Amino acid sequence: MTGKTHIIGGIAACLAFGQTSVDSPLLLGTAGAIGALIPDICHGGSIIGRTFPALSKLINGLFGHRSFTHSLLFLLIVAWALHTYVTNDAIKMGLLIGMASHFVLDMCTKQGIQLFFPIKVKVRFPLTTRTGSKIEGAVALCLLIACLYFSFEIMHLH
């Protein structure tokens, strides 16, 4: 999936979660958008990879693409670090939900992800698509509609 689809997916997932926890929906959604980009630090051409090229190159050299940074192990390490060093719950939850949404969206691609890294098994859904395809565009549109729906729902909760 492209960075744009990941951002929309991270926001949509956070806004859906925000239906139960609406203390800071804007902060939650913003953190979700950022969290949705984090796993692609292993890819030099990604939005976050271009932002931090040295770190991206190092991580890609050590692990490759869609392995460690797309795994439950990475998610647990980040969760521990956030729990230890970040006090704001909306930021913590947004980052983690955004990362999890990234994993789900990349499992919709033919390449899949190494969800159980260091085990070298690729996990993907039975029906997949190619990154940048028209199907991905349709998924992004559906996620955008979900963002609008959940935004209106959150506004009605206040």
Rank of each mutant, 00 (worst) to 15 (best):
I7W: 02
D89M: 15
P39H: 04
H102R: 05
G35H: 01
C142K: 08
A33T: 04
T69E: 02
G64R: 10
S67G: 05
M107Q: 04
L157T: 12
N60W: 03
T87Y: 09
L148D: 07
K57W: 06
A140H: 09
N88T: 12
L72R: 12
A31D: 02
I145H: 10
D89I: 13
A36N: 10
D89R: 14
I119H: 13
T131S: 14
G18E: 03
L26W: 13
L58S: 02
G94E: 07
F152N: 11
M1Y: 00
L28I: 00
H65P: 10
T20Q: 12
L26N: 07
T69A: 08
G64F: 10
L157M: 11
M1V: 08
G35W: 07
I11P: 03
T128C: 12
A100F: 14
R124W: 02
K57L: 06
L58V: 11
A36G: 15
S133A: 10
Q114F: 13
F152D: 11
L73R: 00
M93R: 12
I7Q: 07
H70V: 00
A90L: 15
V121W: 13
G10T: 01
T69W: 02
V104N: 06
H6E: 12
H102W: 06
V104G: 08
L105F: 06
M1Q: 09
L76E: 04
G112K: 05
P53V: 00
I34W: 10
H43I: 01
M155A: 15
M99N: 01
L143D: 02
T20D: 12
C42R: 01
S56W: 00
Q111I: 07
